[in-house]
């Protein structure tokens, strides 16, 4: 089975986020980056499927030179090869545009299965995978917790709201968006890191794929949210803060 994993590189989870000049995106100067967490689980699911059934895992990602570190990490964990769509300024692209970019590179690969995270930790719109499915004219399922091979296709466990789940079957090829935390992420081994250096990374530009930015949705301004609730912050040493809170909870909020 040929499995394509679409990965996004995002600012590391505990980054200090500062708004950049122009007010439309982050100041990227001091940021460190990592593989979007749900995408890391999609990669892990792909590696496990390959271990069970054989085949190939191909990583697909788009972004500037810095995304090479995420590609190397994925290859070190066991992906067989990678496609890097070289592009700058993708933060200005909406999910449909990103879907078109990924679809242009994915179509030529003719994968049996496309896996990606259910959403990104930065933009978080949760759409790219679904848009990609539509653009490739493949069936899809979102918020997937488990994947099993079924006759002529896959049967997946989807998460619904409020603790409900559902099994859904569909023919292959298909696109699945993977929920965070469904498996245990592996670490790259020393051997894996060594091997990654010899693995193929195909580079292609958005122009070569014939896809240009045409945003239907534009981010005008990025800012710190205004507080809607008046939060009373309690100051002092931990003991003083604790005593003040107990006092507030007893006599102001009256919940003790």
């Amino acid at each position: 089975m040929k499995i394509l994993v679409a990965l996004k590189q995002v600012p590391a989870r505990d980054s200090l986020l500062r708004i950049g000049a122009g007010g439309c995106w982050l100041d990227e100067a001091d940021l460190s980056y990592e593989i979007n967490e749900p995408d890391a689980y999609a990669l892990e699911a792909a590696l496990r499927l390959k271990e069970q059934q054989g085949g190939e895992v191909v990583v697909l990602t788009a972004g500037p030179e810095r995304v090479s570190s995420s590609i190397r990490e994925a290859l070190a964990k066991g992906a067989d090869r990678a496609i890097h769509i070289e592009a700058e300024g993708l933060e200005g692209w909406d999910a449909l545009g990103l879907g078109r970019l990924l679809a242009a590179a994915a179509a030529a690969e003719k994968p049996d299965l496309v896996l990606t995270g259910l959403q990104s930790d930065d933009a978080g719109s949760g759409q790219t995978g679904v848009a990609l499915a539509e653009l490739l004219d493949l069936p899809h399922a979102t918020i997937v917790m488990a994947v099993e091979a079924a006759e002529g296709g896959v049967r997946v466990k989807r998460e619904l709201e409020g603790g409900w789940f559902q099994h859904v079957s569909m023919p292959l090829p298909a696109v699945l968006t993977i929920q965070s935390g469904i498996n245990k992420l592996r670490y790259a081994t020393l051997m894996g890191i060594k091997r990654a250096k010899t693995k193929e990374v195909k580079r292609v530009t958005a122009a070569e794929l014939g896809v240009a930015a045409a945003p239907g949705l534009r981010l005008k301004r990025l800012y710190q949210p205004q507080r809607v609730k008046q939060t009373q912050f309690l100051a002092g040493t931990p003991a003083e803060q604790a005593a003040a809170l107990v006092e507030k909870l007893r006599f102001e909020a009256r919940v003790l």
Binding site: A95, G97, G126, Q127, V130, A131, E134, T142, I143, R158
Partner: peptide
């Protein structure tokens, strides 16, 4: 979250989600 991007994409649009 499951179907809306598919719908919007079919009409050549991006969804402003959430």
């Amino acid at each position: 979250r499951d179907y809306a991007s598919r719908l919007a994409t079919r009409l050549g649009r991006a969804l402003l989600a959430d």
